[in-house]
Nucleic acid binder design. Structure first.
Lengths: 349, 349
DNA sequence: AGCGGCCTTGCAATCGATTGTTCCGCGGAA
DNA sequence: TTCCGCGGAACAATCGATTGCAAGGCCGCT
């Protein structure tokens, strides 16, 4: 019944290949597996390979998985597939994992924590070999959950505070430094930060990076205006931006923790009839698709999310192969992309 | 060995639940499956359920899959995960499939045809219960491949010429009609079409829809300027747009087959110092994220891709449950979204 | 010449759930 | 009272690949 989708076409099994080549199924198994191939005489191997090709044999991963406990499946947890930041990560990761022979089960988590653990439990039941997590907060119970169960996992984009698992992230401190340096060089004196949620490492580290960069540029970091958005969305960015403008005077430049927050800031400038970069310069973070098309084209810090996904795939592969190797952190360097949303501050009179 | 990730934690099997409740494993299996539960005495069912809960029993989908040939897995083939059009489709589909108890394997196809068939073969080996295809061209061998192998599949976004499989698409003819009507009402007389590749139903049907809509508005459809882009990308859109402007005079409005093509057209207007909508009005198709932020904000035809994904999931579920039911087509109505890229034509002198 | 060991292959158990078949015991009907 | 039937549960085969173990043959060494 299994493997038989209709009347005529039956899937061919190891045993059939064995019969055709006149050996036992176990020998076929060994001959087909590169790791055990050396146990079989070369001449026999060749005969078996020929028979397998002739029959069009395709191994059944389900049966193999049952026996071995491995599955060549990895799960990827993303907060939101449709988010233009996570899509390239997914894309890069699946590309590389595919090369390595894994198939990818994608889980869109939504936002509930409990659900996240449930999803992982379901993936474990499916015998996934490992997990790529793009969802974790700075201190996430999910990490402990995976470690306790010896499930290989790596983090991507967002890291956790303790580095218990391998992770690939952007250098958020450097990113903010590039941003602040750029604004400072343009002559800005009153630079504000539109921060992201601090439960995520990106929000937290970029905020800290902003403070450090301000200090490095000779500003009083503690006095620098800063508002925290509830989420990395355009709407939350707009809300925080309004607070920022309402409670602080004389801001001429804004370093946002994220492009969507920056776009939310754009919306508020529109509302209030302020020009960008005439009245206020804005710099984003991520360089997500199409931000070069908005008006004004957004100056931002580019992160190669696709590359991030690829590296995460590599790290996961290693974590699966060598479960006891120590966690490694890969930090990718971001890059300043200057467009039209930043300029010298309006001349003060 | 299998199911045992470390020393202490062993997964519990049916047999252990059976021992605890004093019955045979097969009885446990029947008691746990709602469909066969009636074969077991209610009192025994209750005892078994209690034991299962106590042990924290979780059925092994791999073993079940081996036996039954079903897997609760579905594959989704997309041309490009990172494409902002396909991401919401994926998102909507996974959301609904998750509710229905399926997990989703995502395959990013790239563009080679052969590779596509290989991927499907691999998915079939994994015993996927069905497929959602967002990749097919108007006449795609992949469709025949699935049908021959009795693999339930549905199409999304792009349809094929013969309706052999269920599909959910946008009403492309209506979309173009909305676009042309809008431009015509604004007073445009010389309306051009920036078409997409005609090997895809979207490119083909929108082009035909454009011609029909032009005729309906009293224009000579055959004489209307039209250039076909090689791909649904910004770059290809720019190339086609240059051809359009170089070979036709007096165009005042452009109906693009897709937002990315429209953005490519923006690029060309920039190059040539033409204003939009001052000199030329442009209308897109899809309403993908952020096109409200570009300058000028893009007037476009909105398609709810997320809803498309959801409906595709429903259709697939039906196709799996009733493999012999006839193919159904779901056509979603698109909607005109007026923004800033369309206006009355420049007054002719 | 005999024996130990290695190389190659076959045998059979195993992974865990599902399901066709068998078996048992009890109640009702002849 | 006996037999049939049936509900309910156990038994065992099965899905297909993997792998520890056993067996057989050949070679070399003493």
């Amino acid at each position: 019944m299994a493997g038989k989708r209709n009347g005529k076409r039956t899937t061919i099994t190891l045993k059939e290949v064995a019969e055709l080549s006149g050996v036992h199924a176990s020998t076929v198994s060994r001959a087909l597996n590169p790791a055990t191939r050396s146990m079989v005489m070369p001449a026999v191997v060749e005969r078996i390979l020929k028979a397998a090709k002739k029959l069009g044999y395709q191994p059944d991963p389900v049966a193999a998985s049952l026996r071995t406990g491995r599955s060549s499946l990895v799960g990827i947890l993303v907060p939101d597939i449709a988010n233009t930041v996570f899509a390239p990560i997914l894309s890069g990761a699946t590309e590389r994992l595919d090369e390595q022979g894994y198939s990818v089960i994608v889980s869109d988590v939504g936002n509930e924590q409990g659900r996240q653990i449930d999803l992982v439990a379901k993936l474990m039941a499916r015998r996934v070999d490992g997990l790529i997590l793009a969802t974790v907060s700075r201190d996430d119970p999910l990490v402990a959950y995976c470690i306790e169960r010896n499930l290989p996992a790596v983090l991507v984009n967002r890291a956790e505070t303790q580095s218990r698992l391998s992770a690939v992230v952007s250098d958020d401190a450097l990113g903010m430094q590039l941003a602040v340096d750029h604004l400072s060089e343009l002559g800005h004196k009153r630079i504000a930060h539109l921060a992201g949620p601090t439960r995520h490492s990106t929000g937290f580290l970029r905020r800290r990076g902003f403070a450090q960069a301000m200090a490095a540029n000779g500003f009083d970091a503690a006095a620098a205006p800063c508002e925290v958005a509830d989420a990395f969305t355009r709407e939350a960015g707009a809300v925080a931006m309004r607070r920022l403008l309402d409670t602080h005077r004389g801001i001429t430049a804004i370093a946002a923790a994220n492009d969507l927050l920056a776009l939310g800031a754009y919306d508020v400038l529109h509302e209030r009839g302020l020009s960008c970069p005439g009245a206020i310069s804005i710099i984003g973070h991520n360089d997500m698709p199409l931000v070069d098309m908005v008006a004004p084209a957004l100056t931002t810090i580019r992160i190669s999310h696709r590359e991030m996904g690829r590296q995460a795939a590599d790290l996961l592969h290693q974590a699966i192969e060598q479960p006891d190797a120590p966690a490694r952190n890969v930090v990718l360097p971001p890059k300043l992309i200057v467009r039209k949303s930043t300029a010298a501050p309006p001349s003060t009179k």
